[in-house]
Structures are given as C-alpha cells and as structure tokens.
C-alpha cells in the first residue's frame, strides 16, 4: 500500500460529501438526479433510497470480495444490488403509495445507477468492511445532499414552495419550465457552473498569492 492510500476513516467519509461529491464532482448517477428532483420531497426520498442501497451493497460486496472470482464479479455485484433494490421497492410501496407513484420506475432503476456499481467496483471490492461502510455512508449522504440542492432549487423556482410549504405570496409567477424535464438540465448546469466558478476563483487567487 502506498502512502497515498493510507487515509484515515474520517477522510473516506468526508470525501464523499465534498471533494469527491458523486454528483457535482464525479458527475455519476445522472439519470435519477435529473428525473426525480422536481420536488424536494421526491429528491429526499430518492436520495435516502439510493444511500441505503449503496451502503448495503458496499457492505455485502466488501464482505464477499475474497471469494468472488474476478471474471464474474460485475454480475455478482449487479445481482447483490438488484436484490437490495427489490427490497427498497417493496418497502417504499408499503410505506407510502403516493411516493411510490411519484418516483415510479426510478426506484427499480437504482439498480443501474452507475454510482452504486462504481463504488462497488472501485472501492468496496478492494477495501475492508469498516472503510467500505464509511465510504458508502459518505457517498450516500453526498448524493442525497446533491439531490436536495437540485430538488430544492427546482421546487422553489417551479412551484414557489419547499417541501410543499408555500414560500411566496399568491403573486408569485411559477417558473413552470423548472419542473419540466428541461429545467432539470438547466438547474444541474447552474450548480455545476457555480462549482466551476468557485474552483477557478480559488486557483486564480492561489496564483496571485504566488506571484
């Protein structure tokens, strides 16, 4: 193991939240990010469901990494993920039928979220149980956070409310396009712009200090 890989557990947790945020930095798992973030509530539910699957699959993949042959590992990972997604699908159906209707096929589509398979392949299949749990937690929370950012922004602009609580008076003109598909692309582009702008400003000011 090189020195670079010997990070502490806290680092594994924190990196998912910010420096390697799955949505804003790694741009992974885009489909649910855009599709179900038309309200903050949907975004939160989707984020939690994904985080749960991510955590559980990280745990299982990390525990069985010793005896899965290399050739069939991807298939094994996918099957593990699919089993947990089936569980989540039935749980959401039992808890709230409305939510299940709102999220629709996208709960089942957590299976093909590249983020989960990506973490299983890139992290959990190479690291121990404890670190994989921390990684799954961090990435899951980071993903939920990003979904909330998008869902919140789209709901505020598109419906003038947040978590179904109206924010503005009756005079508020709803920006309908924000809850439509096109709005998803624009909102995500907006957030990425913000992140890029911060990054360029940081490197610029660092350059000025050196000069």
């Amino acid at each position: 193991m090189t020195a670079e890989q010997q990070t502490t557990g806290t680092d594994e947790f924190i990196k998912g939240l910010w420096s390697q945020n799955p949505v804003f930095v790694q741009v992974l798992g885009m489909c649910p990010v855009l599709a179900v973030t038309n309200t903050a509530m949907n975004a939160l539910a989707m984020g939690l469901a994904t985080a749960f699957v991510l955590l559980m699959s990280n745990i299982v993949v990390s525990s069985i990494r010793g005896f899965v042959p290399k050739q069939v590992r991807i298939v094994t990972f996918i099957l593990v993920i699919a089993s947990f997604v089936t569980i989540v699908d039935y749980v959401i159906q039992a808890v709230s039928l409305d939510l299940h209707k709102a999220l629709g096929a996208f709960i089942s589509l957590i299976v093909v979220n590249c983020l989960i398979l990506g973490r299983a392949e890139a992290f959990a299949s190479k690291n121990g149980l404890g670190r994989s749990i921390l990684d799954g937690l961090g990435m899951g929370i980071g993903f939920t956070f990003a979904l909330l950012c998008l869902g919140g922004a789209r709901e505020i602009l598109g419906s003038g409310s947040l978590f179904d609580l109206p924010l503005f008076g009756d005079s508020f003109q709803e920006w309908v396009i924000m809850v439509l598909p096109a709005g998803g692309f624009f909102t995500l582009a907006g957030w990425l712009l913000l992140f890029n702008w911060r990054a360029t400003r940081k490197t610029k000011s660092a350059g000025e200090v050196q000069a």
């Binding site: 741009v27 709005g183 582009a189």
Partner: peptide, 15 residues
C-alpha cells in the same frame, strides 16, 4: 472558461 465541459453540454441538452 467557466462553462467548459459538462456545464455547457447540460445547457445544450436542456435546450
């Protein structure tokens, strides 16, 4: 410079 990469692609996709 700021919009290069994913951001501009997403804006096009939105349009």
């Amino acid at each position: 410079d700021v919009v290069k990469g994913t951001a501009i692609t997403l804006i096009i996709a939105g349009l």
